[in-house]
Every structure is written in C-alpha cells, then in structure tokens.
Amino acid sequence: MKKDLLKMEDLSKDELLDILNIADQLKYELKHGIKHHHLDGKTLGMIFEKSSTRTRVSFETGMYQLGGYPLFLSSNDLQIGRGEPIQDTARVLSRYLNAIMIRTFSQEEVESLAECSDIPIINGLTDDEHPCQVLADLMTIRESKNILDGLKVAYIGDGNNMSQSLLIGCLTSGMNISLAIPNNYMIKEDYINKGMQIAENNNLYFNIVNDPKEAAKDADVIITDVWASMGKEKEVNERIKAFKGYQVNAELMKLAKKDAIVLHCLPAHREEEITEEILEKHSDTIFEEAENRLHVQKAILVKLMK
C-alpha cells in the first residue's frame, strides 16, 4: 500500500522520528563521502505551480544523490495548465514515474492528485501546509538541543502554512508550542481543533495569543516567517501595519531562554519580521535549517519510494 506525505497530520510520532533518523544518517554519509544510491533507476516528477529556490534545488540535488532522476515539470509545460483534470494527469504520470512532488496553491489539488495516483505524492508546499520545511525545522532543533520532548517552541507571525504545519509537527514530536498571531490572520479552526486533540492526548500544551512577548517567554526555540506569503504580495502594506510589534528582535529574545535558537524558513525580509542583528546572530542555525531541507527530503524520498 502506497504512502503519501500530504500534511503533517499524516505522520505518527514514530514515523516522524524515523524520517529524522534516516535524515541524520544520510547527512552523515554525505559529509563523509559515502554514496547512498537507495533509489537507483527511480524517477521523481516535480510539479511546480509556485516558484521556488530551496524546494526545487534540494529535491533535484537529493534525488540525484540517491541515484535517481529528478524531472522538473512546470505547470506551463503540463496539460494541467490547459485544463486537463488533475485526476487524468495523476493517472498518466503514475504510469511514467515512481513518485511526484508537487508545489502548488490548493491543498485540495494535492489530495486529489494523491487520491488518483498509484505512486507516492509529496506536498512540497501549499497554502495550507509545508510539511517538508517543518520536518527540516524539527531536524535542526534536535541537532541543536539533542532532544525534542518537552521543549517550548514560540512561533511569531502569520497564521499561514508554516504555522499550521508547525502546530501539528511540534505537538506530534512531543514539544509544546505557543503561537503569537494577530486576530485577523489566524490559523484555520481545523488546525486548532487538531492541535488541542494532540496536546490533550499527549499531556502537552499549546496556546494562541496576540502578544509576542507572552509567546516568547521561556521559549527554547523562536520561529518566524514572512508577513506576506507567496500569493499575498498585494497585501504587503496592510500586513506591515497589522504585524507591527510581531518582529523577532533583541528585546523579544531577552524573554526567551538564554540558549534559545532562532529559525526562519527563508527567504527573510530583514527589518520586517526579523532584524538584521538577530538573523545574523543566529545565521549558523538558520542556514543549517536550510541545508537540512536536503537531508530530510532525501529521507522522505527513501521512506516513501524505496
């Protein structure tokens, strides 16, 4: 039976940790020149309806390092862009490829693709979810702190795909999370309800507040993201006003634990959601986080395709 990765909710704690452990091993092997061609002869189709730097380069490079072949498929080059139903595209590609990674707008499109495909589907980003990025974040946190269980994560910013996936991913992995989000930019109620359920079942806590200082207090990890995600560019000026006070800066960091780390999925808008000072102070961790996209996505590919 095939397995997909469409959202963080798809992973149990054991499955999540298994991906992180595989990623650690693949990272070690790459650093020590040990080849790991687990996917010899396999082909990954990569559908992009949203532009990308990190997602495309990391998946292409990762598939190559695993011995397989990555195939870039722009929506402009596919019949999807000319009105072919997603279910027909899924049936055709399932006969050519061994897996598909798709980066698009609608979560429903990804789930429709998975429903009609006979091969694994990986969500490379939608408006609702960004599971590959959150797995890279969890990998980076564990590298830095050596554990996940019991840590406190504070997310400061927009109720977007990152915050929704982080909420589920952090709680599933055994961490507590506090999110500071303006009222008019809140995460979806489904994610709040799911978070409450996971927290209650695992004796964890999460809360959503309006005050970033409240969220940041005693945090082990501070995470932020741009205030206007892809597709929200027309709202930039409005959002800059709404998110005033939601900046990760030196004053906010004083409230977190002294050894707290800062993560940002990038690209960052310096002096908006994060100051130049804090980004550069934590640049080693932030760019390790970016590198870990490569390793964790390779682990996902191995787990789903091998």
Score class of each variant (00 low, 15 high):
L93I: 14
I177K: 10
R239L: 02
I240A: 04
Y64H: 10
Q197P: 00
A250N: 07
F59T: 06
K31D: 15
E15Q: 14
S163F: 07
Q133M: 03
L125M: 12
L125T: 09
V209C: 13
L304C: 07
N249P: 03
H32P: 02
L17F: 15
E29F: 14
G157F: 05
S58K: 04
A114K: 09
L73C: 12
M305C: 14
L30K: 15
Q107K: 08
M162C: 09
E273Y: 07
E189P: 01
C116Q: 05
N237S: 09
I168W: 06
E271F: 10
L20H: 10
C116S: 14
I47T: 06
N160S: 05
L5D: 01
D218Q: 01
I122D: 10
E233K: 14
N161W: 01
E143S: 07
I100G: 12
E288L: 11
G195W: 00
E280M: 11
S165D: 01
M101N: 09
I177R: 02
H264D: 00
H264L: 09
M196T: 09
T53L: 11
K7E: 15
H37W: 06
I187Y: 11
V92R: 01
G174C: 02
G195L: 01
G169Y: 00
P120W: 00
K244H: 10
N98C: 08
S173Q: 02
K50V: 00
M63S: 04
H264G: 06
C132R: 04
I168A: 01
L93P: 00
I34R: 10
K298S: 04
M230L: 08
K232H: 11
G169F: 01
K27P: 00
I86P: 07
T224W: 07
G124K: 09
N161G: 01
N183R: 04
L279G: 05
I156M: 09
K257L: 09
L26V: 04
L138S: 08
D190N: 15
N184K: 13
K194Y: 10
R56A: 12
R239N: 08
M186F: 11
M253K: 02
L5P: 05
A99L: 04
I47C: 12
N207E: 13
T126S: 13
K254C: 09
E273D: 10
L171M: 09
E280V: 06
K306I: 14
S165T: 06
D77Q: 11
S144Q: 11
Q25E: 05
M230V: 03
K3I: 11
